[in-house]
Design a binder for these strands. Structure first.
Length: 561
RNA sequence: GCCCCCGUAGCUCAGGGGAUAGAGCAACUGCCUUCUAAGCAGUGGGCCACAGGUUCGAAUCCUGUCGGGGGCGCCA
């Protein structure tokens, strides 16, 4: 929109200056146009003169003057560009005719729910893999953070026109010692439920959810496993424990607004022979060698700092072998953009996973791995210690009970994935009215209420094209319109940069500007129906943007509060 | 020992080459006979951890130091 047109105008000015010999011929780079922080610096700004000054051998300020003069006189953009000036060390600032903001409102009204969508990621087939927790306990608050990041990124890619799949990788390999421990723990609880003496192993799972599963099995199957052969029973119980846990995780995530297109079983990779095939391929490509009876991936050839075992000396494949097969499978299914959202304990796996992908001949640069930092839970300022085995974790389900889905999603999304996130349950419980999410939702509810009142009082919202939008001249109206105009760019920034937390900041900005507008500008005025009409168009556009924004974050947009 | 993340207002954090560094919360002062006060306006509050370097320009990039959090496997 406006930004692209300005970049185009600057490019033309630069090219014509070079044609006329006023500027020496250099390659024209991508022209960055941004919204200046200080509104006195105009609606848009570019630093192109400063970045090109050295190469063009002209002082930045002078180059800016040359370009500004041409932008003023070239004529083509005059309807849009009202004034161009040069400021500071060589910024070119653009003051636009207000008509671009009116065009924005018309655009928002026309596109409605699709305002913000684009083709910025057209042709991209994105596979987002996230959460992927072990099926040995409920979804934790930490995994939930990865869930919100991954799900929101998926929504952003959808808005950018990509084909998107969400996938959960289940670490259900049969040889997992964790899963066997989990199965043993379930057997113990099962026996205890039936009144049989049984001792929980030291590294057993103490969580109450294990007992819950045992009760469920007793209720369903009674004591029929009591006399079963021990090994056989352990295998069966490990499987049942896993199935129950996956079902619980699925339900908890669904309640959190996260649904996966596929729950991808690690075990299926082993059973289908894909792990063996990947290992074979690595050998063929000369990327694997034997040492100490084990098979090693030469990951150091691809930037890792150590070679990694693929097959243990007992012949069993390692986690990285399965991961290599999994990522190969992703590419083989036609995905050209792989995004993995992993927890902080996985940062050491980035290099080796990328190495495995490259060693198999796939483009490692198409794989982006996002590591989010830990969520620490506090209760009344005290750190809550968490251990899955000891069973004193706070689950996603409990978190939602405490603070609700909207607040949980908003909070877990609010911080950059690079920052550790402190979540104080006590605070969230006692001061939930002060959560920023309410601030944003309140803006939406206020708008809905306003539009209901307008309807009752006979103030119809005119079609945007018919409204006298030029009457919107109050600074609060202008600022709000600018924010609404920026939404499509924000989607692309948050999406392509993989920074979904930007949405929370954008939502708070938008809400703040609406609240300010609401305070400063009375919308319904019997004495000025035309102004009222224009303002109602602005209000409805704002509802559209807030609605699209909240939907993208997976947070509800209430009509009443 | 090696690796990752963080260090910005009293607190929790945005900003991650650009102009006068922001928000929420907390504190204080105002604003509801009129569309939702879950709101708005104002005040106070900062050596952007520290030291070098790169750059026309550094909170932002690079090096190092210090402080905090997390991770290192032929576990998954």
């Amino acid at each position: 929109m406006a930004k692209e047109r300005i970049a185009e105008a600057v490019k033309n000015a630069l090219e014509s200056a070079m044609r006329d010999g006023e500027v020496r011929r250099i390659a024209v780079p991508v022209i960055e146009v941004e919204v200046p922080r200080n509104r006195e610096h105009g609606d848009f700004s570019t630093n192109i003169a400063m970045t090109l000054a050295r190469e063009a051998q002209i002082p930045p300020r002078q180059l800016a003057e040359v370009l500004a003069a041409r932008l003023q006189s070239d004529g083509a953009p005059t309807r849009l560009i009202q004034k161009v000036d040069v400021a500071g060390p060589g910024f070119i600032n653009f003051h636009l005719s207000p008509s671009w903001l009116h065009d924005t409102l018309v655009e928002i009204e026309r596109r409605g729910d699709s305002y913000g969508s684009s083709d910025a990621a057209k042709g991209v087939k994105a596979l987002l893999e996230f959460v992927s927790a072990n099926p040995n306990g409920p979804i934790t608050v930490g995994s939930a953070r990865g869930g919100v990041i991954g799900d929101t990124l998926a929504r952003l890619y959808e808005l950018m026109g990509a084909e998107v799949a969400r996938e959960y990788y289940i670490n259900d390999a049969a040889n997992s010692t964790q899963m066997i421990n989990f199965g043993k723990s379930l057997v113990v609880r099962y026996l205890q439920e039936l009144g049989v003496e049984a001792q929980m192993p030291e590294d057993g799972y103490q969580g109450a959810y294990v007992t819950d599963i045992a009760r469920k099995i007793v209720a369903r199957d009674g004591d029929r496993y009591l006399d079963m052969q021990e090994d056989e029973r352990l295998t069966l119980f490990t499987r049942m424990a896993e199935e129950e846990m996956i079902a619980t995780q699925k339900a908890d995530l669904a309640a959190f607004g996260i649904e996966f297109d596929r729950w991808f079983s690690e075990r299926s990779l082993h059973e289908s022979g894909k792990v063996a095939a990947a290992i074979e391929k690595l050998k063929e490509r000369g990327c694997a060698y034997e040492k100490d009876g084990a098979l090693w991936l030469k990951s150091t050839d691809f930037g890792d700092d150590k070679d990694r075992a693929l097959l243990r000396s007992n012949g069993a494949p390692t986690y990285i072998a399965a991961d290599a097969a999994y990522h190969a499978d992703k590419f083989d299914r036609g995905f050209n953009r792989l995004i993995n959202v992993w927890g902080p304990d996985h940062h050491g796996y980035i290099a080796r996973t990328k190495a495995a992908v490259a060693a198999l001949g796939y483009p490692a640069e198409a794989l982006d791995i996002i590591i989010y930092q830990a969520v620490r839970l506090f209760s009344g300022g005290e750190l809550v210690m968490m251990s899955k085995r000891a069973g004193d974790v706070i689950s996603l389900a409990e978190l939602m009970q405490e603070v609700g889905r909207d607040a949980a999603r908003f909070f877990l999304l609010m911080r950059s994935h690079d920052s550790q996130l402190d979540f104080d349950l006590e605070l969230a419980r006692s001061q939930s009215d002060e959560n920023p999410v309410y601030y944003v939702q309140y803006a939406h509810a206020r708008i809905c209420s306003l539009l209901r009142n307008a309807d009752e009082k006979g103030f119809a919202v005119p079609p945007a094209e018919a409204a006298k939008l030029e009457l919107l001249t109050h600074p609060s109206e202008i600022e709000l319109m600018k924010k609404l105009a920026d939404w499509p760019d924000e989607v692309v920034r948050a999406g392509l940069e993989h920074e979904p937390h930007r949405l929370a900041a954008f939502a708070m900005d938008t809400a703040r500007l609406f609240h300010k507008f609401y305070t400063d500008c009375r919308v319904m005025d019997e004495a000025d129906r035309e102004l009222s009409g224009a303002r109602l168009v602005l209000v409805r556009s704002c509802r559209t943007v807030l609605g699209n924004l909240l939907r993208t974050m997976g947070v509800t947009a209430p009509e009443r509060m």
